[in-house]
Design a protein around this nucleic acid. Structure first.
Lengths: 113, 113
DNA sequence: CACTTGCGCAAGCAAATACTTGCATTTATA
DNA sequence: TATAAATGCAAGTATTTGCTTGCGCAAGTG
């Protein structure tokens, strides 16, 4: 049975979302990531494995470390799915248009955080 | 044990996403929804229950029918989470813009389906 | 008032999850 | 070269899913 782990499945788990958050700005190795959670390294390792499987994380072997880097563009699938309904909860589509405009501006004015 | 079913968990299942899709434009009762899937009504009923639990569906009793209406604004939580990473795959932003444009057109020229 | 229709509830199950502990392997390092 | 550090792999377990079948009940209908 093909393991049907897709992106939606991947981000369904809060721990995995937290992991993504952790490496969103800069890559970290497995142990560093694991150190931030209460569960064992093995558990985190498994979560990472799942994230790798669905393309959300890219692992780069670096000596004895495995650098985990986020491939956030993989989230676009979810983004697209959700956005198709945006007009249903934002009274007007024009709002989305403004939203995109706003995002474009943010893109130019390098992010802070 | 508090059932921790959140929106992410809810949309993780393809059947549930399909259900949301089905009632996105107009409400349907449970049997009508179930008729569109290969699984039993009970299975669908359970999925609907889950969607109701996390606020993605609103059920209105209408005689012996239970009209299921989508509360798509509940998806904003997911949208917000994903969007915080959007700048990481910003190249896709222009595509979204085109997408919005396309949606606007569809809006004017009433959809078919 | 029988009968059909729309549904929920509950019991039972197989498979998938989320974790853990234990052990093996590879790569720096003192 | 021993030793520590960073991980993966494997086995075992408790839960949580996703479904099914069976049953009961309330709301329309002929």
């Amino acid at each position: 049975m093909k393991t049907r782990r897709d992106v939606y499945q991947a981000i369904a788990d809060p721990t995995r979302r937290a992991i993504i958050n952790m490496i969103a700005t800069e890559p970290h190795n497995v142990n560093t990531i694991a150190a931030n959670f209460d569960v064992t390294r093995q558990a985190i390792s498994l979560h990472i494995q799942i994230l790798v499987d669905c393309g959300l994380i890219n692992v780069k072997q670096q000596g004895r470390d495995r650098l985990c880097e986020a491939r956030l563009d993989q989230l676009s699938e979810v983004s697209t799915w959700v956005d198709q309904y945006r007009q249903h909860w934002e009274s007007k589509l024009d709002n989305l248009e403004k939203y995109v405009e706003q995002l474009k501006n943010e893109r130019h004015g390098k992010h802070k955080k």
